[in-house]
């Protein structure tokens, strides 16, 4: 943890060094600036449109959106039915939708079924409800291993599943995007929808974590 990263037991990737030197980063920034100048000059993009898109995905579109969907499903049984039947429309009801969320499916975790999402071929992810994916979701270790050894990968996230729990891996091979509806935690019975939303983590909606109520 001393380097700000949470390392697990297995050896880290021998292929990919996560960090770039200052020189390498400077070169990437220069290449990007040259490309931006070219695209602006050609009339393909406008700089203020780029500014707005960065701001949108840094501030407005993130896992807090998905958390609101989950909290609503936990507190409103008819919403939950609509969500499981037609997630795209039900998520739109709360004002979320768009790029990489055009065709949504929500899969429900229960005491006997645990769902977890991956994209082994690239890094498909439901942007409108979860924002842009974390680094580990895009890394080769997760993309390659989750399909073949989901239980071992989940264990690296600290989630150990009993043998009698069925694991369902959803490999996002088309334009369908998946959101996991986590189990509502014990001890949350009296909480409001707003407070419940604060409990819901990004990782629980990908399926690599469960949610618990802090008892401090």
């Amino acid at each position: 943890m001393s380097d700000g990263r949470h390392r697990h037991d297995a050896p880290a990737s021998p292929y990919l060094e996560n960090h770039r030197t200052a020189e390498e980063s400077a070169e990437l920034a220069e290449r990007t600036a040259r490309l931006e100048d070219y695209l602006v000059e050609k009339g393909l993009v406008a700089r203020d449109a780029l500014d707005r898109l960065v701001e949108l995905y840094e501030q407005d579109i993130g896992p807090m959106n998905g958390a609101r969907v989950v909290a609503r499903a936990w507190t409103d049984p008819s919403y939950k039915l609509r969500l499981l039947d037609d997630a795209t429309t039900a998520i739109r009801e709360l004002g979320f939708g768009g790029m990489q969320g055009e065709h949504m499916v929500v899969v429900e975790n229960t005491p006997t079924v645990h769902n977890v999402v991956v994209c082994s071929l690239c890094s498909c992810y439901p942007w409108p409800v979860l924002g842009l994916p974390p680094g580990w979701y895009k890394d080769f270790a997760y993309r390659s291993r989750l399909p073949i050894e989901p239980r071992a990968v989940l264990k690296e996230f600290g989630l150990e599943l009993a043998d009698d729990v069925e694991v369902r891996v959803w490999d996002s091979s088309a334009e369908i995007r998946y959101l996991v509806l986590p189990e509502r935690p014990d001890g949350s019975g009296t909480m409001t929808e707003v407070d419940l939303a604060k409990l819901v983590s990004r990782d629980s909606m990908i399926g690599v974590a469960r949610i618990s109520v802090e008892t401090e």
Partner: peptide
């Protein structure tokens, strides 16, 4: 790369 096991552990930041 689905099914390959040569990339080590998943490292979350």
């Amino acid at each position: 790369m689905g099914g390959m096991t040569c990339f080590g552990s998943v490292v979350a930041e």
